[in-house]
Design a protein around this nucleic acid. Structure first.
Lengths: 209, 209
DNA sequence: AGCTCCATGTAAGTCGTTACATGATTCA
DNA sequence: TGAATCATGTAACGACTTACATGGAGCT
């Protein structure tokens, strides 16, 4: 139940088509909440069914053989957005595939463990870069989405709108850095274990008792 | 596909019943990968269906009217564990409900934002404490699961087994600390915005264009 | 007699993934 | 004329959640 509200928030920035929305999504929320286009379309129809958004069919192109569908927020949709923000959600349990695997690296060789931590580091380095780039865009108020958003909002709220988003992405950067540090410590650990154990080292799982 | 391998790894520590497994799970892996008992039972049957584990029905209690079912790892199961550890997984997209909401806090009052960050801090403080307690248990090699695990593994692998797990939980502690810091910065931000904007501040979403 | 723990599940539903499917428009 | 992009979906499946359901064992 987060995709739902994220879409409401995107639509709040002004009417858009599903396709456009999906694109905006890809260059904003998706850094924090990943979703496929197919899911976005599905969710949009559900939102309309539930009366939180309404749509209008528009012609498309000069020949007008094609159409597109523009969505706008309804009053219940706006209310839902406010309700959701004020609601205290109990976070769902932690679930991190990489960390689970890291607790069982003894079933692999030192090379496997090294590859694991390197891949982890690489992944979070690229995430960090994307987050930092996005922060720059936000601070410059340069993204089309943010512009539309600010146009429709009172001027004295602009700072807050930008500041909350920047703060979120700062948090994501801090996270990415923590992951990079963790991966580096992991590499150090593998180096130590490898040295101490000689070449033999790691372990084979036993399949009977 | 992580619950699957986590269960294999638990079973590798020696034959156990589903119920026991679920309990072990709750005091170990579940700190990193949350799962319900009902899901664990379902997954165990799937694992057996796929030949990765095998089970044996045992009597239970003195009257022996009841039974229980003990699972053990099969050879394909052990192979799957090794395969999984060596496999490079592409991390699934980020998906964090709290961070998404934090980018839209302007739709709530300053009080709402404050409550949000306080709840966030509280949650991660308690996580941090649990992780730290678990590290102590691991380092003392005190948990029943770890003991069974070490009993079955060659002595020269014990350090690695413990070290990888401790490293994982250190990472989780670092994460929790980062979240706490982020929440505190969030509270500072709210204080600043609230002061600057006077009492009026925050925003109402618009529901038409 | 009653409570807590041991023990094992099913059923319905939601959320999300992967793969497929279709066709118009714009521009080089 | 062909490629990229605009535009919108469906279908099948897998993972997970929530709620329900049952009953013996062990202890006081």
């Amino acid at each position: 139940m987060t995709l739902r509200q994220a879409l409401l928030a995107l639509i709040e920035a002004g009417p858009t088509t599903g396709y456009d929305l999906a694109k905006q999504f890809d260059r904003s929320v998706s850094y924090i909440w990943h979703a496929q286009h197919s899911q976005i379309y599905t969710e949009l129809r559900r939102l309309e069914r539930d009366g939180l958004i309404a749509s209008e069919v528009l012609p498309r192109g000069s020949k007008e053989l094609a159409t597109k569908r523009a969505y706008r927020l309804t009053e219940p949709g706006a209310a839902e957005l406010v309700r959701w923000v004020a609601e205290t959600e109990t976070p769902d349990g932690v679930r991190d595939p990489a960390y689970v695997k890291s607790t069982y690296l003894e079933y692999g060789s030192a090379a496997v463990a090294r590859a694991f931590f390197r891949a982890h580091r690489r992944y979070y380095e690229s995430l960090r870069d994307r987050y930092e780039a996005h922060i720059d865009e936000l601070q410059a108020r340069a993204t089309p989405l943010l512009r539309r958003r600010l146009e429709r909002a009172p001027a004295d709220s602009h700072d807050a709108i930008v500041a909350f988003k920047v703060h979120a992405y700062h948090g994501m950067v801090a996270r990415a850095r923590a992951e990079i540090a963790w991966a580096n410590e992991g590499l150090d650990l593998v180096a130590t274990l490898d040295r101490d154990a000689g070449r033999g080292s790691m372990l084979t799982p036993r399949y009977s008792d």
